[in-house]
Design a protein around this nucleic acid. Structure first.
Length: 558
RNA sequence: UGGGGUGUCGCCAAGCGGAAAGGCACAGGGUUUUGAUCCCUGCAUGCGAAGGUUCGAAUCCUUCCACCCCAGCCA
């Protein structure tokens, strides 16, 4: 990729400047997911940004599990996250860490805050706490427990840790300013009692640190310089800075600095963890890796190449403006990648039988078909041809319009790589549905070119009845019908046709042992990959994405 | 009506005082044994609005408007 393709964004500009001015000697970033769900395309933006900046400036990027809430987190998610980051093409090397590894450090730091008179144990209930906090327009008031002595606080916090108090009865708070116009600074709670075992530390702890406390401390501890997060944490930045400064911690790389960017929103899908969990729990989709999900796992199963996700993340840019990226841009990136790398194959989705009357009954011919018409280095594969073949039902019309470049009574069409055929008759069943075509072929058109130079406008794909194999194909479409399904109930905007299963499709023999992860273009139909449930007895393909279809527009307009 | 942010083409997004990049989408046209790909062409006298400063403003100043975030012992 050449430099001119990469337009700069404000974070890259900032890092460059920080390095030039010597503010930081090195760049260390981090991607800090909470292991309470699967990663999605929105996370991919953050992953590409964080790992991307580290790579570009020869720094490091940490993968840190932000696990400070034992009731939500699970090892299952940790493993899924690691798999997804790796699949996307990033390597955290030795820099994998867990906030939970730092629990002792957090605790000691909290104790130091108490000793300095900067933190206190507060007995206010949830409701009282809310009352004392004030509102957006009115200042809060000091907690009656705010002036406990250092000794008392130390003793109480120690007892909290030992589990001597009920959950919810006490919290440890920072002593900042209850009148601050920024609610985050109104004596935020940094430790709460949770008598819940943690998936990594077991039942060692009865108190757990909260986000604001753990995030900045994890960052310094990791040696992070540029702490990149999303816009909603902008209000938390003063607290991030306050904690680091007041902690007095010396950092080899200098204190980390938080920079916020706008999270990704994509039209026609949802990216909030809550909504995604809802889709899974309500069984609207088959699971986190349902190919319709915007999760990394779903996209992987769908067949979307990781390169296209990375390219997409580069194309959308990084800024501070709330925005909704057009799903069409993502689709473009997927097609762009697949067009270059997917091998071409034949698959007839809705078979219509064609008998070539003047072709010898038992004759067979093998055609060498290009794996990629634009890239000869990808080679060829042999495809067998015979008297009876299948073509797409929609490639024949009884009464075709002038612009229909396919088959109709008396019309000619080219069978790709094979022969020119002409429809001489067709058979219908009692319902009036066309069930079989009778055609003749032009023996002098072997390979597809007419000997007399006549122009054949249409070219269609085909599969030999004798040689072809059966397959089931899952045709996926967007999960939602509305641009912003995030508003309102999910059910209201679901696309009822987001999954259609087509059975008894005909595929060419070379597709027999296609494996998940191998991606093909089924010519004229779209890009497909073998599903994880596919095997050589029961082949199942997933539609990754269709080809752009000009005909759809032309015919739709008439 | 507290504080923090953001407003440049339908959707993203460069630009940072010298005179509106690029991508997607869309619309034309060309090539084509995938109605795919590819290749041309078009697409903001305008930068949320109004004033002002300047020879010159999307870029500086003033006022206004719109939208987003914050009152979890979530992250």
């Amino acid at each position: 990729m050449s430099d001119k393709e990469i337009s700069s964004h404000f974070i890259r500009t900032k890092i460059k400047k920080d390095l030039e001015t010597g503010k930081y000697k090195t760049v260390e970033t981090r991607f800090p997911p909470e292991p309470n769900g699967f990663l999605h395309i929105g996370h991919a933006k953050s992953i590409c940004l964080n790992f991307g900046m580290a790579d570009e400036f020869k720094g490091k990027c940490h993968l840190r599990m932000d696990d400070t809430n034992p009731v939500k987190e699970d090892l299952l998610f940790v493993e899924a996250i690691k798999k997804d980051v790796k699949w996307l093409g990033f390597d955290w090397k030795e820099n994998l860490s867990f906030a939970s590894d730092l629990y002792d450090f957090f605790y000691e730091t909290a104790v130091n805050f108490i000793k300095k008179g900067k933190a206190y144990v507060c007995d206010l209930s949830f409701d009282q706490m809310r009352e004392y906090r004030g509102t957006l327009t009115e200042p809060g008031k000091n907690s009656p427990y705010r002036d406990r002595t250092v000794e008392e606080n130390l003793d109480l916090f120690e007892k909290m840790k030992k589990g001597e108090f009920e959950e919810g009865s006490k919290v440890l708070r920072l002593k900042i300013d209850m009148a601050s116009p920024n609610l985050v600074m109104r004596d935020p709670a940094i430790y709460r009692i949770m008598k819940v075992p943690h998936y990594r530390t077991g039942d060692k702890w009865k108190v757990y640190p909260m986000y604001d406390f753990a995030q900045c401390l994890s960052d310094v501890k990791n040696g992070v310089t540029h702490s990149i997060c999303t816009l909603e944490f902008e209000n938390n930045r003063p607290l991030y800075d306050w904690i680091l400064k007041e902690s007095g911690i010396e950092a080899a790389n200098g204190l980390p600095e938080q920079t916020e960017f706008a999270r990704l929103n994509l039209s026609y899908t949802v990216l909030s963890k809550r909504k995604l969990i809802e889709l899974v729990n309500k069984k609207i989709v088959e699971g986190w890796d349902d190919p319709r999900m915007p999760t990394i796992a779903g996209m992987r199963r769908r067949g979307i190449p990781p390169e296209s996700i990375r390219n997409f993340c580069e194309k959308i840019g990084v800024a501070k403006k709330d925005s909704v990226v057009d799903a069409a841009l993502f689709e473009h990136c997927v097609r762009d990648e697949l067009n270059v790398n997917a091998k071409r194959r034949f698959c007839v989705l809705n078979p219509l039988k064609v008998v070539i009357e003047n072709y010898e009954d038992d004759k067979e011919e093998i055609f060498d078909c290009l794996n990629h018409p634009g890239d000869e280095s990808m080679g060829t594969r042999p495809v067998a041809f015979s008297k009876v073949i299948y073509i797409e039902k929609e490639d024949f019309l009884e009464d075709p319009p002038k612009k229909f470049f396919r088959l109709g009574p008396g019309r000619e069409v080219r069978l790709r790589y094979a022969y020119i055929i002409k429809c001489v008759d067709y058979i219908k069943d009692e319902n009036g549905e066309v069930t079989e075509l009778r055609c003749t072929y032009d023996p002098l058109s072997r390979g597809g070119n007419a000997h007399d130079g006549r122009k054949i406008k249409g070219t269609i794909h085909w599969v030999s009845e004798k040689h072809g194999l059966d397959a089931n194909v899952k045709i996926y479409d967007r999960l939602f019908n509305t641009e912003n399904p995030g508003k309102g109930e999910l059910e209201e905007s679901l696309n009822p046709d987001s999954l259609k299963i087509i059975q008894n499709c005909k595929i060419e023999p070379s597709l027999k042992d296609a494996k998940p992860g191998e991606r093909f273009q089924f010519e004229r139909n779209g890009y497909f990959t073998a599903d994880k449930d596919s095997d050589s007895d029961n082949r199942v393909f997933n539609l990754i994405i269709t080809l752009r279809d000009q005909w759809e527009k032309i015919s739709g307009k008439k």
